[in-house]
Design a protein around this nucleic acid. Structure first.
Lengths: 193, 193, 193, 193
DNA sequence: ATCTAAGCGAGACGGTACGTCACGTCTTGGG
DNA sequence: CCCAAGACGTGACGTACCGTCTCGCTTAGAT
């Protein structure tokens, strides 16, 4: 509650540099995949010195994560009509659509390969996964309230039951990741409750 | 037209070199994690020339995959007694135990990061995932036969429902991956069937 | 005396790479001075990987020294006629001419700035300084034999008396370094002997 | 119209900053040698902003030169007794003692590596070299007056004959730089005159 | 018993990216 | 207008691996 907010001395960080770095990371990802996102390439593309990047992030993965977090495509709004479980089913399919893109797959690979304990890693995981999961959970809660689901449901578990298989198929590619799978998944997880 | 083992001329490949390479890969993984498994390090550790490795495998990931496939720890046999669903529950916990090791986590990261379309990649995926899944499926089939599960069950889907969340938690680490989760997972997936 | 001469295993070093590196160093020196001779620039100019340079030399100075040693311009032969002291006088002037070039000045700066204790440094010093000094000494010896100089002369000291002031003027530039100075120097050092 | 000390507007330069900068340069030199004297390190050590240094000097060498000039250790007074040539001999040895220190060697390297045409460079050269040379020359002049040396002597040349070899040995290190050398040098240069 | 073709270890090769350092310039708020 | 602080773009540093190559040396079936 103090007015202080002690401004640090020295030249402030350049917000433009930051934006350029993140934009460059996204660009490189789109053009050449994860392997193309190197510190060197980001610096060149962003017209930025390497030390500037290292001042913000410890490695290219972290840059990529931040970039993906800030550039996250909106989860398309689903139609808020009809039975809640139908809405949830549409939500699952929307998520599948997102994860089926290159960007989605890259996000998953980043999560898989990252240290899992760093701040950026945690933030990325929470932001990318839990952001959509919270939407799903809201729907589950509503369904609960409507009596469409049993009151004893463990939503954390259900969330993993919905997201885990999607993530699994995306990374392994052993089975198609398409709307039909979304239907079957939702049916299996929700129908019997 | 002879069966005559069209033996190629020249010195045959050294089986010993191959073994050394794979052993070196495992060693390096145990000691330094996936990042330590480089072609350079493998060659040094295995007392082998780099070209020899490249003759067999295209990159270090592929070596690591092969090594993990051949060195795969046996899935501990579960006790074949009692209700099949109980056996399945024990099976799930056994798999969780395997995946919770460094080797298990490395396997998952390899799958996640690999090209997914190469031969070694497919083989690794099939071997590492499906090997244990076939055990699980056998139990499911038996349960089906025993009438413990409905006859209409889609086992591919059930497999993903069991493995997906395990894989998911292992890679994300957002929730513990322990026997209690195995119980809850099995309960949720199987109980209602 | 042994026929052995044990050839080391592995691919032998590329003599061409070595030549390219040294040529590149000389090129860069001529075009941009000592400051332009960086490892990076040498590698680029020589079409050679940086590690290849580091395999041979510890830093750019060392490369430059080797290059200058191998590319050393011949000390122009002086006319072998007349009194030996006249020949020596011409020799001193020839050396002044060499040291007055960019290459000569660079050589002096390298010697001045180098670690002085490394192998390359010693070799460079001996080669660049003593190569010409040995010529001078030969002339001194002949003069001695001819009775043109007293027999008690300390040639090491005389060498420093001849080279020191040349080196001094070249680096400090406080006085001209020209043939007239060569004459005066030779006169002062030799005349009274 | 007024003599009024055309005081410039704005905050005057801080003399304290200047002193801190020079002290820091000396400190860094003593602790880590010439290579440790970087603009960055000076600024940090002196608690001074880098632009402040750049306002006074163009580069770290120039700072170092100024610092060495202002911190120049006094040439120890030699005993003003006995034959002038003996005094000169003691003077030469005193100079050798100074140049044999790290600071002396650094000064020589600075002169060798510097641009030679900048103001600071010239000042440094004149101050560091000629300061002591003027003392030597005074002795030579006195010796001349006393009839200890021939009247036709070219003192500039003699100065180079005395300083050149000292400088030479210090930078090359091919021969010891000690009092015995001082004696031999003085003998050779002065004895025959 | 040789010949010959391929695999072997070793290790140098041209590269690319790494993460760090210092450069010299700039942009802040404060004196 | 100078000051300290410190971020900026730049570019060289020295290192680690990459995947390829060139050596001299096996090794073993074909001659």
């Amino acid at each position: 509650m103090s007015e202080s907010a002690k401004r640090k001395p020295g030249r402030p960080r350049s917000e433009e540099a930051r934006r350029n770095i993140l934009a460059a990371a996204i660009d490189l990802l789109e053009q050449g995949g994860l392997a193309a996102v190197t510190m060197e390439a980001i610096a060149k593309q962003a017209q930025v010195g390497k030390p500037t990047i290292y001042r913000y992030w410890p490695n290219a993965q972290a840059v990529m994560m931040t970039a993906l977090m800030e550039a996250q495509p909106e989860i398309p709004d689903i139609e808020k009509k009809g039975p809640t479980l139908d809405q949830l089913r549409r939500h699952v399919k929307a998520i599948i659509a997102i994860f089926a893109t290159r960007r989605g797959r890259s996000a998953a690979m980043l999560i898989a390969a990252a240290d899992a304990n760093t701040e950026v890693s945690k933030a990325f995981r929470n932001h990318v996964i839990l952001k959509s999961r919270s939407d799903g959970k809201a729907l589950l809660d509503q369904a609960l309230k409507n009596g469409e689901l049993p009151a004893t449901l463990d939503t954390d578990l259900i969330a993993d039951l919905l997201y885990g298989p999607i993530f699994f198929r995306m990374l392994l590619g052993h089975q198609p990741l398409d709307p039909r799978f979304g239907d079957a998944l939702a049916d299996q997880v929700l129908a019997a409750q």
